[in-house]
Simulated assay, not measured.
Amino acid sequence: MKKIFFVISLAAVLFLLAFIWRHSLQPGTISHAESQYVLHIVLSYVNGTWLAPYLDDMHIRRLAHLTEYASLGLSMSCLSLILSGRQRKIWVMLAGICIAAIDEYIQQFSGGRTSTWHDVVFDTFGCSAGIMVVAALRMLYRRYRH
């Protein structure tokens, strides 16, 4: 069973890395069009609610950063837990920050894109959220396993 979880966690980490860095390589026009498409879908669900006026392209991009890196933090935490028996929160966080910095560095070579330290901060918050989810699930498991 441990081997299955290892394969799933490793595959999730590798998939997310490819997904994140592939999006970093997209030219600005394609990235903007993709954000507008997602914004249109989200607005179709929340139109008429208190949330709709606050959603725009920038917020969709920030939510994308948080979601991608929360998933990555969760996957890397699971992988470290399987490999070492411990969650290794600091190492997972450092890996997340390095991956975010590489992500922003890659964007410099994509036409019409800019890299900002703000995105690295959002990515770090996302990674932290994923780490906290695994920590909370571990705590609940330990408390209620008997």
Results as ranks from 00 to 15, higher is better:
Ile8Phe: 11
Leu10Gln: 02
Ala11Asn: 04
Leu14Pro: 01
Phe15Pro: 03
Ile20Leu: 03
Leu25Gln: 14
Leu25His: 09
Pro27Ala: 09
Gly28Ile: 05
Thr29Trp: 11
Ser31Leu: 08
Ser35Ala: 14
Gln36Cys: 12
Val38Pro: 11
Leu39Phe: 05
His40Trp: 08
His40Ile: 00
Ile41Trp: 14
Ile41Asp: 12
Trp50Asp: 11
Leu51Pro: 02
Ala52Ile: 06
Ala64Lys: 05
Ala70Lys: 04
Ala70Pro: 06
Leu74Ala: 13
Met76Pro: 00
Ser80Cys: 12
Leu81Tyr: 14
Leu83Phe: 06
Leu83Lys: 06
Ser84Lys: 08
Ser84Pro: 06
Ser84His: 06
Gly85Met: 06
Gly85Gln: 05
Gly85Lys: 09
Gln87Met: 12
Met93Trp: 02
Gly96Arg: 02
Ala100Gly: 04
Glu104Gln: 04
Glu104Gly: 02
Glu104Arg: 00
Tyr105Val: 01
Tyr105Asp: 03
Tyr105Leu: 04
Ile106Trp: 02
Ile106Asn: 05
Ser110Ala: 15
Gly112Ala: 11
Gly112Gln: 12
Thr114Tyr: 10
Asp119Asn: 09
Val120Cys: 06
Phe122Asn: 04
Phe122Met: 08
Asp123Gln: 00
Thr124Gly: 08
Thr124Ala: 11
Cys127Arg: 06
Ser128Phe: 13
Ala129Glu: 07
Gly130Thr: 07
Ile131Glu: 01
Val134Trp: 00
Ala135Ser: 09
Arg143Trp: 10
Arg143Met: 11
His146Pro: 14
